[in-house]
Design a protein around this nucleic acid. Structure first.
Lengths: 243, 243
DNA sequence: AGACTTTTAAATGTCAGACAAATAAAAAGT
DNA sequence: ACTTTTTATTTGTCTGACATTTAAAAGTCT
């Protein structure tokens, strides 16, 4: 592992990049211990604080974990699903909130991806996933729910739908799309009537999945997309009129 | 912003978390300047190196950027698509390579998501995307291509297909799924015959997109998935027999 | 007065050395 | 043989310093 002295980038960024490359290329394998900070400082001919900054960069991406003590050090971390989920959600949420992405674009992407899960979910759905979906539907039906709670339950319903496909990679990819929409959804005021419409579609989707009817579920998901878009539009129209 | 003195986590991790939360909650807006390292050290009652480690963590996630000089400092960064792409690819690649995910699972997720793009791509495909797809097909058809180059072109073809949907959020989500498969694909030896089969399907897909026939494109994408799976199986069978 | 140069101040980047705290292995004691 | 103590190693944190970059302020010349 070498760093380029001609580069203008921070030394800590260069070192982090070198180690990251080594991990991604397989030169460093999972649970392998990196040299101690002092040794790394020697190898790269930098000070220990600089090495530490590099290691913190990698830790932020869950590429390494550190342990104190005699047999401690920095170890190549196995990127777990929860870690990957968290990163996915952070990145997706920020991408959406910082780039003036229209509700339509985000919504379209999300529902397109969800429809990709539906055929698999219809085929493989388990008792667990169906139970979760029904439970969330029940929660959503209760009156007196805040908009935030309604949205949170909506997210949980859709996550159960996605997880129903039984493909963890697909779940990982989708979690960002679903969760990142929540801040946008939270801007919407859900009237009792619009909640009823959404819940009815949720029921219809759950029923279709239950009956292993992927085509029907897909169509109803599209109807839900249309309903969501309609709702968002009416809110935005109201809001811009209010201004 | 406060940190919890009872927490066992590193101070730098706590500080990074506090600032991250402030950014994600909108308390700090894009391009806003954070206090200087010395001021942050005062506010959090820690030393400057600790603050710096926290800032490096955030920089690793592209949440902030730093600038030297009189008017320099740390600024809340607008997460750009390229940055988001890079993070998505890193995370997806590591997730796949470190978690013993079967080729089938990864392949299924990827093609399910690609099929989600196809109806939109068929509807909106531009001259540019079609040209890119055709160009990559041409490249793939050349003999004497290494397996790596063939795979790279395959990725480029699929990215063009995805981008054809004209939804940047969808592209962002898909880029991880497509790119993360490349290391797995690179393990495959592509015979001349298997290359021909893949290229033929690429042509068929491009044609269908060209004719705005989303259904046909989707079916052919499924055929490509089956072909890829078959190919991978034959390779793995050969390999395990060789051992 | 206006344009150019020099100085200065503020900020990050880097370094050196030190001590604290955690941890496991080795040594000592019972 | 078991428990306790010591010790060595490693990360976590702090202090203080200097280097480098950058823009604004001050100064200088035409």
């Amino acid at each position: 592992m070498k760093i380029d002295p001609k580069s203008t980038a921070d030394l800590s960024a260069q070192i982090a990049g070198a180690i990251r490359d080594a991990i991604m290329q397989g030169d460093l394998i999972v649970d392998e211990r990196l040299p101690s900070e002092a040794e790394l400082a020697d190898q790269f001919a930098v000070s220990r604080p600089t090495v530490r900054e590099a290691l913190k960069r990698l830790a932020a991406q869950s590429l390494i974990r550190t342990q104190r003590g005699a047999t401690g050090g920095a170890f190549v971390n196995r990127l777990s699903y929860p870690d990957a989920y968290a990163q996915q959600i952070t990145t997706s949420t920020l991408l959406l909130s910082m780039n003036a992405i229209s509700f339509e674009t985000a919504c379209e992407a999300r529902y397109a991806m969800e429809r990709a899960c539906v055929p698999l979910a219809a085929q493989r759905r388990s008792r667990d996933h169906l139970a979760t979906m029904r439970a969330e539907i029940h929660r959503q039906s209760q009156s007196g729910l805040t908009d935030e709670a309604f949205c949170a339950s909506d997210v949980a319903f859709h996550r159960a739908l996605v997880d129903g496909a039984g493909n963890p990679v697909l779940s990982y990819q989708l979690v960002g799309a679903v969760e990142a929409m929540q801040p946008l959804m939270n801007m919407i005021t859900f009237t009792a009537r619009s909640r009823d419409a959404i819940v009815a579609l949720h029921v219809a989707i759950a029923d279709a999945i239950d009956e292993r009817d992927g085509v029907a579920a897909s169509e109803r998901l599209s109807a839900l997309e249309a309903e969501t878009l309609k709702l968002a539009h009416s809110v935005f129209v109201l809001r811009s009129a209010g201004q």
